[in-house]
Structure formats: structure tokens, C-alpha cells
């Protein structure tokens, strides 16, 4: 993140501006200091403590077991096949949900970009899932929709001979993803609708005169125009969904086994159900490093897109 931010020019060295001595500089910065110190306390101290814990063997259920073990926790993490499964789950859950939500959001945005009777009502209804508390949404999916005996999905599918399917037990990862997609499609839809509505009409008219079919217009003009909106949606969605916890906790508790666990949930399990502070801290550090690498690429992508490379001809 810091790499992409403009460093504020230090007042002492600003060319042309009157020279400001050190004391004056500090006097000007002083009002910002409390916020800075607060931010450091709540973000950096826990992180440094996590780094410290990750170098120790420490199980809460065995008092006095705390000892310094260098990097053996990290070795254990990379040797842990469950950790790898969970990491893969996280990638599938995050990227799969985001990409499907983008595609569905695009379709709905294209629909809402047309004039039809009751458009306002439809738009409000389509946005609603995004406004529901994640825990409530997860509960809704677990009981009202996916319950094997009482769920609406099975009720609707009964005439087609598919009753009694145990959705959450048989397809745990897909079930959690369904709930995530349901919640995140409206976000993508809103973002892409804004993109569609910022499309200059004269370009669309020019395409009509130039003989483009609806599909060619979409592929050749609309999609390139939407590219940066899609990228923004993917990046924001990924940043949020990679940390998702509520749906996993509520719907499957990561199970069966770790079939539907993602990294935040697995770390939570290790720390607060397994009480293995050292190893969960090491996992946290690994996840932070991987996330930083991924986020760096992703942010670079959207800052490039939004620097207005091919804006407004």
C-alpha cells in the first residue's frame, strides 16, 4: 500500500517555500500524532507480538509449555497438508465467488441498464442481499434455503426428483460459496451499473451507425469500457472475501473435516479451539505475507487502470 501513496513533501525541503525549522515542523505535525500513535498501537503492536509468538512453542492448555523454537512452527505449517488444503479452499472460495459474482453482477447490471416498468423496485430488491448482516444471511442459507428437509431449495426441486439432498454436508464449499455469491453479486452489479451508465451514448450511437450488432457493441466497446470497473470489483471483492469468516462459521464450521474451511477460520480453530498459539501465529504471518504479495499486484493493477490511461477520447 505504502508504495502507491504519494509521500507528502517535507515542509523543510519544499523548493521555493519559506524554510521551516524543525520545531515549527513538529508543531505542525503534532495534531496528527495521536491518530498515528493510536494506529501504531492497534495494528503494529499486535503484529509484532504475533511475530514473536510465531517463534515459540506455546499451547494454552499446557501451562508452562512456552519455549523459544525459532522457525519450527513455520516448518510445521508448510508440512501441514491440512494447511495446504485450506489454502487451496481459500483461493477457490475467494476467486470463485468473486468471479461468479462479477459475471452475475454484469448480467444484472446489463438488465438494469435498460428501461422497463418497475425498474426501481427490481433494483432495490436486487441490492437487498448486500444489506443483510453476513451472519443473518448465512443462517438464512443454512436453514431456510439449504436445510435437507425444510429448505426451500429441496422443496422447489422435489418435482424434479431431487428431494432430500444434504446440500451442506455433501457440497460444503459450494454451499458457502453460494451464500457469498448471493451477498456479493449486488455489489458487483452496482459497480458495473455505474460503469455502464458512464458509457458515452454517442459512442453507442456511432456503433449503431457503423453497423455493429448488439453483441459486437458489447464485446468491442462496452466490455473494454467496463474493464477497469471489473478490475476494481475483483480487487475489492477479493480483499473482502479472503477474510470472510461469518459464513464459514455459521454454515459449516469449516467441515466436514476442513472441506469448507478457509484460512481465517482454520487459524481461528487452531488458536481458540486447539489453543496452539505458536502455530496459529506462524500461519497468520504466512497468510499476511502471501496476502501482501497478492494485494500488491492487485492494487498496482487498479491504480494503473484508474490513472486514466485511455480515458475520454
Amino acid at each position: 500500500m505504502t508504495a502507491t501513496m504519494e509521500r507528502p513533501a517535507a515542509p523543510e525541503t519544499t523548493g521555493g517555500a519559506p524554510m521551516i525549522d524543525r520545531a515549527e515542523g513538529w508543531r505542525r505535525r503534532a495534531p496528527l500524532l495521536p491518530a498515528l500513535i493510536f494506529t501504531i498501537i492497534v495494528t503494529q503492536i499486535p503484529f509484532i507480538l504475533t511475530l514473536w509468538y510465531s517463534l515459540q512453542s506455546w499451547n494454552l492448555v499446557r501451562p508452562g509449555s512456552q519455549e523459544f523454537v525459532w522457525f519450527s512452527n513455520y516448518a510445521d505449517v508448510f508440512a501441514d497438508s491440512q494447511f495446504r488444503t485450506v489454502a487451496l479452499n481459500t483461493v477457490i472460495m475467494t476467486l470463485g465467488s468473486v468471479l461468479i459474482a462479477v459475471v452475475l453482477g454484469l448480467l444484472l447490471a446489463l438488465l438494469l441498464n435498460r428501461q422497463f416498468v418497475g425498474r426501481g423496485v427490481v433494483r432495490t430488491l436486487l441490492i437487498t442481499p448486500f444489506l443483510i448482516t453476513p451472519v443473518a444471511a448465512a443462517l438464512l442459507w443454512k436453514t431456510v434455503l439449504l436445510d435437507p428437509t425444510l429448505g426451500l431449495i429441496n422443496f422447489v426441486l422435489t418435482p424434479f426428483g431431487a428431494s432430500g439432498t444434504e446440500w451442506i454436508s455433501n457440497y460444503p464449499l459450494a454451499s458457502v460459496m453460494a451464500a457469498l455469491i448471493w451477498q456479493w453479486t449486488p455489489f458487483m452489479m452496482l459497480l458495473l451499473l455505474a460503469g455502464l451508465q458512464s458509457m458515452p451514448t454517442d459512442q453507442l450511437e456511432a456503433a449503431r451507425v457503423d453497423g455493429a450488432s448488439a453483441w459486437s457493441t458489447f464485446r468491442e466497446l462496452t466490455l473494454p469500457h467496463l474493464r477497469r470497473f471489473i478490475e476494481l470489483g475483483v480487487v475489492l471483492g477479493t480483499i473482502y472475501l479472503v477474510n470472510i469468516f461469518d459464513q464459514v462459521y455459521m454454515m459449516t464450521q469449516g467441515g466436514p473435516g476442513v472441506a469448507s474451511a478457509n484460512l481465517p477460520f482454520y487459524i481461528y480453530q487452531r488458536a481458540f479451539l486447539g489453543f496452539d498459539i505458536g502455530q496459529s501465529a506462524a500461519m497468520g504471518v504466512v497468510v499476511v505475507i502471501l496476502t501482501l504479495i497478492a494485494a500488491n499486484f492487485a492494487l498496482r493493477l487498479i491504480f494503473k487502470s484508474f490513472s486514466g490511461e485511455e480515458e475520454a477520447a
Binding site: 458515452p200 450511437e205 466497446l221 473494454p224
Partner: peptide
């Protein structure tokens, strides 16, 4: 027919 628009309506991605 072919048309020239006031704001040219060029396709920015092309």
C-alpha cells in the same frame, strides 16, 4: 450512411 459526431465519438480503447 456514415455519421460524424460533434464529440467525434471515437472508441477510446481502439
Amino acid at each position: 450512411i456514415a455519421m460524424v459526431f460533434q464529440n467525434y465519438a471515437l472508441y477510446p480503447s481502439k
